[in-house]
Simulated assay, not measured.
Amino acid sequence: MLASDFGNVLWRKSSYSGQGGNCVEVADVMHVHGAGLEWRTSSHSGAQSNCVEIAAGIQDVVPVRDSKDPAGPVLLFPADAWSSFLAGVKGGEFTAG
């Protein structure tokens, strides 16, 4: 995905990248926490506090975070990849172990 696909997400290079042009960039989503996103857990989570939370509100992307660390890192997944993952979970493709 291109940076423009993420709308208001900021991109930055690692401080270890130096001046070279072949660098991996990471999305700086710290500002997403204050962007008015509504985070939620699965309805199957019950009252547990060890959950994965997702938020809607960024087009074509699903933000995911750890409920125990709401100010921590946020992973961004393409919406179609997240849908495929959920279909696999619901279809029994993954086993608990």
Score class of each variant (00 low, 15 high):
residue 1 M to N: 09
residue 1 M to S: 13
residue 2 L to D: 12
residue 2 L to A: 13
residue 2 L to N: 14
residue 2 L to W: 10
residue 3 A to D: 13
residue 5 D to W: 06
residue 5 D to I: 02
residue 5 D to F: 05
residue 5 D to T: 10
residue 6 F to V: 11
residue 6 F to A: 13
residue 7 G to L: 05
residue 7 G to Y: 00
residue 8 N to L: 13
residue 10 L to S: 07
residue 10 L to W: 01
residue 12 R to F: 06
residue 12 R to D: 01
residue 16 Y to T: 05
residue 17 S to E: 01
residue 19 Q to D: 10
residue 21 G to I: 08
residue 23 C to I: 01
residue 24 V to A: 00
residue 24 V to Q: 00
residue 26 V to N: 04
residue 28 D to C: 06
residue 30 M to G: 14
residue 30 M to N: 13
residue 31 H to N: 14
residue 32 V to E: 07
residue 34 G to T: 12
residue 36 G to L: 08
residue 36 G to N: 02
residue 38 E to T: 15
residue 38 E to C: 13
residue 39 W to Y: 06
residue 39 W to P: 15
residue 39 W to M: 08
residue 40 R to D: 02
residue 43 S to V: 15
residue 44 H to A: 12
residue 44 H to L: 14
residue 46 G to E: 03
residue 47 A to F: 10
residue 47 A to V: 10
residue 47 A to T: 13
residue 48 Q to D: 15
residue 48 Q to C: 14
residue 50 N to V: 09
residue 52 V to E: 00
residue 52 V to F: 03
residue 53 E to G: 04
residue 56 A to D: 14
residue 57 G to Y: 05
residue 58 I to S: 01
residue 59 Q to M: 10
residue 59 Q to R: 12
residue 60 D to F: 08
residue 64 V to G: 08
residue 64 V to F: 09
residue 65 R to I: 06
residue 65 R to P: 01
residue 65 R to C: 03
residue 65 R to M: 05
residue 67 S to H: 02
residue 67 S to F: 02
residue 67 S to V: 09
residue 68 K to S: 08
residue 69 D to F: 13
residue 70 P to K: 07
residue 71 A to E: 14
residue 71 A to P: 10
residue 72 G to P: 09
residue 74 V to H: 00
residue 74 V to M: 05
residue 74 V to Y: 00
residue 75 L to I: 14
residue 76 L to H: 01
residue 76 L to R: 01
residue 76 L to Y: 00
residue 78 P to H: 14
residue 79 A to D: 02
residue 79 A to M: 07
residue 79 A to P: 00
residue 80 D to K: 12
residue 80 D to S: 14
residue 80 D to L: 13
residue 81 A to S: 11
residue 81 A to W: 05
residue 81 A to R: 11
residue 82 W to H: 05
residue 84 S to R: 12
residue 85 F to P: 03
residue 85 F to S: 02
residue 85 F to Y: 11
residue 86 L to P: 01
residue 87 A to Y: 02
residue 87 A to V: 06
residue 87 A to Q: 03
residue 87 A to K: 04
residue 87 A to N: 02
residue 88 G to V: 09
residue 88 G to R: 08
residue 89 V to T: 05
residue 89 V to E: 02
residue 89 V to W: 03
residue 90 K to F: 02
residue 90 K to T: 06
residue 90 K to H: 07
residue 91 G to S: 12
residue 91 G to A: 15
residue 92 G to F: 04
residue 93 E to S: 15
residue 94 F to P: 00
residue 95 T to S: 13
residue 95 T to C: 07
residue 96 A to N: 00
